[in-house]
Design a protein around this nucleic acid. Structure first.
Lengths: 226, 226
DNA sequence: CCTACCGATCGGTAGG
DNA sequence: CCTACCGATCGGTAGG
């Protein structure tokens, strides 16, 4: 029996990662969700192995150390965040629509539990803000990039004439993201179901207050959930 | 030799807590700071005992379980928060001065490192938002009270005629606190030294935008640190 | 408040 | 990818 019947036809090989890489990826998907629920420190190799029905050492062979596992988990979370929040928003037309899409998708990724425990990076930020080392640096790097994506969207909205130019882009990006973090906080701690629509409303109100007459209408608030 | 020379004069007794209670309090002061740095789960009995140069079991005798230790730590943090942030602000005159004092003192308690790792409750909120049990409930309770103190201050500022009555008090309280959390986040993750003065500026700008002409001037921004 | 323990779990290794 | 380990530390207990 040729090997092809066991592993699929040869021409499919390039669509399949090597087995080790696939295992590693499935480990990291579970790791991201576990870490979002119990923290990156609370992500223990034993718990993770149990969840995956693997032996500890079998799992551990994919990573050199716990720190490597944490780094790989952060990287996987970053990729998921980019795919779910940033990429679809950047596909929207420049200006206010794209800026609003970034905000809306962010709230949406918490509401839809893209990460089981809410926003992976918000939790990780507060968990690692008093520490040092490569894990904290990667978290900070991802958040720096996110803020710069947001503030660049503000800048472009200004260049499109959708937003008043009096506003400092970095500052508005920060204000918007603070409201987003706040709605995550309120939902997580109080189980407030309206936290997300309230958060969207407040961000929208802030954007509307700074919009020009050239700005296309923004009325996606409280859109029905799929 | 009478006992009084060893324990102080009898009339001083009511000013001194029993020894056990004093030890317990000094344990909790260290516990609050350790937990603010490493999380309430990262607060282990061994680390705490080491920090206090006590034996694990000697320390543990003051608490029935780790959960009891966590609950007592949250309660101690709550008391410190009330004393440092809420009480001084409530001493300010009703209306905008008191509302601003609440905001300013909150930012100040992070900036002055009243808790070694920043705001105890912000970190604890994000650490426990996916869990259940009495520890999470106490954290949520403390934050519910804090938000209600803030929104009551907004309401009174409206009754004083300092703030426009069109604003929803709970919503404004939430917006203000989101900006405060955001400035904490930016300082903690990026080491941004201007995060606090930026946070104060943004909160002030929001309050000024909603203030009436009757409102007393607000110009405490960037006041020199002692 | 201590010493001396307990079983469980931690991150990590040896050897296959 | 596994079994079988390692020393260290976890929360917690017995007994004083």
């Amino acid at each position: 029996m040729p090997a092809a019947t066991l592993t699929g036809p040869p021409w499919a090989a390039k669509f399949r990662a090597p087995k080790g890489a696939r295992t590693r990826e499935s480990i990291l998907h579970v790791a991201v969700n576990l870490a979002s629920l119990e923290g990156l420190q609370g992500l223990t190799i034993g718990r993770l192995a149990e969840e995956l029905k693997m032996s500890k050492s079998g799992l551990f062979a994919h990573f050199g150390s716990k720190e490597d596992l944490q780094l790989a988990t952060v990287e996987m979370a970053r990729q998921i965040f980019v795919e779910y929040v940033i990429r679809p928003a950047l596909a929207e037309p420049e200006g206010m629509p794209r800026l609003w899409a970034l905000c809306d998708r962010w709230v949406d990724h918490v509401e839809s539990r893209v990460f089981a425990g809410g926003c992976f990076f918000t939790a990780a930020s507060f968990e690692f803000d008093s520490r040092s080392g490569p894990v904290r640096d990667r978290i900070a790097g991802a958040m720096r990039t996110w803020l710069s994506v947001l503030s660049e969207a503000v800048e472009r909205a200004q260049k499109c004439g959708h937003l008043k130019t009096a506003v400092n882009p970095e500052q508005l990006a920060f204000e918007i993201y603070s409201l987003a973090i706040g709605s995550h906080w309120a939902h997580g701690l109080f189980g407030d179901r309206k936290a997300f629509s309230n958060g969207r409303s407040m961000i929208l109100a802030r954007l509307r207050a700074l919009a020009t007459s050239k700005c296309p209408p923004l009325c996606k608030i409280d859109r029905p959930r799929v």
